Amino acid sequence: MRIDESFAARAPDADAMEAMARRSLDGLPLEFREQMGNVVLRVEEYADAESLNAVGLTHPMQLSGLYTGRPIETKSVSDFGTLPDIIHLYRQPILAEAAQRRISVEQLVHHVLIHEVGHHFGFSDADMHALEDSAD
């Protein structure tokens, strides 16, 4: 998809998108924020081939966010030396989808972030789609 030039000129950079995501995290209820632990937030331009392959996708514009790590219900106090959990937000796919859907980038960042936070709490994609459908 081609993003119109006026939109691209005012599109948020990675730092601005990260600030949007942090505002969304700060807006979570305290009981959820407390369980986010040391989850790292990263804004990258696109998913790499390994990440795409891991979720069965082939094109970097197909993936707007990804949670890598272990859901909290599978963690143990005896875990040691594990990599941090990471929420990846992919800037270019988010910008393209926001333009296509004619919604604000901040709305879409919030939506994608909450979806990835759901994975941290052990929800599957099917679980989250069902919750979204019941909220509509």
Rank of each mutant, 00 (worst) to 15 (best):
D4K: 08
E5P: 05
E5I: 10
F7K: 12
F7H: 07
F7Y: 12
A8Y: 02
A9D: 09
A9T: 03
A11H: 05
A11Q: 08
D13A: 07
D13H: 07
A14P: 15
D15F: 04
D15Q: 06
A16M: 05
A16N: 02
A19C: 05
A19N: 05
M20R: 00
M20Q: 05
L25V: 04
L25I: 02
G27A: 10
E31F: 15
F32Y: 14
E34K: 13
N38K: 15
V39E: 03
V40P: 06
V43W: 03
Y46Q: 07
A47N: 08
A47P: 09
A47C: 12
D48E: 14
A49K: 13
A49N: 07
A49T: 12
E50L: 09
S51D: 09
S51W: 11
N53V: 11
A54C: 07
L57W: 06
H59M: 09
H59A: 15
P60H: 14
P60S: 14
P60V: 13
P60M: 15
M61E: 09
M61K: 12
Q62P: 00
Q62W: 05
Q62G: 02
S64K: 13
S64D: 14
G65R: 11
G65S: 10
G65V: 02
G69N: 02
R70V: 12
P71C: 14
T74E: 15
T74H: 13
T74N: 15
K75S: 11
V77W: 14
F80G: 07
T82R: 13
T82Q: 12
P84E: 06
P84H: 08
D85F: 00
D85Q: 11
D85R: 06
I87H: 03
H88E: 06
R91N: 09
R91V: 07
Q92D: 11
Q92N: 12
I94P: 03
L95E: 02
A96K: 12
A96T: 12
A98V: 04
Q100D: 14
R102E: 15
I103V: 08
Q107D: 13
L108F: 00
V109H: 03
V109P: 07
V109N: 00
H110Y: 09
H111E: 14
V112G: 02
V112S: 03
L113I: 01
I114Y: 04
V117N: 04
V117K: 10
H119V: 04
H119K: 10
H120P: 00
H120G: 01
F123W: 02
F123D: 03
F123C: 03
A126T: 03
A126K: 11
D127W: 03
D127Q: 06
D133R: 14
S134Q: 14
D136F: 09
